[in-house]
Design a protein around this nucleic acid. Sequence first.
DNA 1: ATACATTTAATGTAGAAACATTTATTGGCA
DNA 2: TGCCAATAAATGTTTCTACATTAAATGTAT
Lengths: 152, 152
Amino acid sequence: MSIETDIKQKKFRSPYQKLALNLVYTTKWLEYKQLESFKEHDITPQQYNVLRILRGQQGNPIKVSDITERMLDKSSNTSRLVDKLLAKNLAKRTSCESDRRAVDVVITEEGLELLKVLDPFIEDWENRFNIISEAEAEQISALLDKLRENED
Amino acid sequence: MSIETDIKQKKFRSPYQKLALNLVYTTKWLEYKQLESFKEHDITPQQYNVLRILRGQQGNPIKVSDITERMLDKSSNTSRLVDKLLAKNLAKRTSCESDRRAVDVVITEEGLELLKVLDPFIEDWENRFNIISEAEAEQISALLDKLRENED
DNA sequence: ATACATTTAATGTAGAAACATTTATTGGCA
DNA sequence: TGCCAATAAATGTTTCTACATTAAATGTAT
């Protein structure tokens, strides 16, 4: 369905306004859809994001501040997110030898297993994007990168 | 900056995964940037969204449920959002004659004035999108619409 | 070495979001 | 008409977010 129909707005100030609204609307739509899979496993999108980053480390520990750097939402409180993962035995926390201010985090076996269960759902969602071509996907990505260049 | 650099991930499973992450990341970036303008005027993005919808009515009252239908985030609690606008004298609420369950909402002069102050900031943001062409913006919008077609 | 700014993580707090439930009204229909 | 499901909005509650503050460790300059 077109954004015009979805938010019942017939006209936009410019193609740029329309794109801005469409970006926000489509992302909320995507997050809402993915949320359904996450809820079943008692995990939030942000906790999932941290778990994915931990798995990407392939066994190597990673500091809390480095997790934040890699997150999609950099304003999130990584400390508390790690707390939640800890409480569910999805991650473990050890003090960092080289810098005693820092805290090293590693994913547990249980965390890896949860990701293995979630993987097919997420991949399924991503694959539905193939309603557009790979080239088109790459092109949108490139344009999004370009939009963000315009820093202030 | 490329999404690869921003979230420090070198490889993606597919262009579709990359696009999914880029959509979420770029929208968070955009929301965060706009938040700065909103905060100065003690308003949240969702309250702004409601105000814009109210202004779009051009003086005609609109029911709470119809506001929800037009919002970018349809899962939001419109009742409480309207409460906040009321408390700040940005909107008024009158009971609907034809259906006493419903509540009619109208923007106030003060609300219109606040939007007038915010307009240039928002337009400025949207105009920065002209780093890409109008045609490209339309094209991305069309592709985003296409992505959402894939309902479940 | 000491003082002071910086970095890292954790915590306190107010406000907002998410989700279910409640209350009032309406519409349909037996 | 009377009953019941459906709808509209408000409210209760728990959790999360945003933001500031704190506390400990480190780096740096004098």
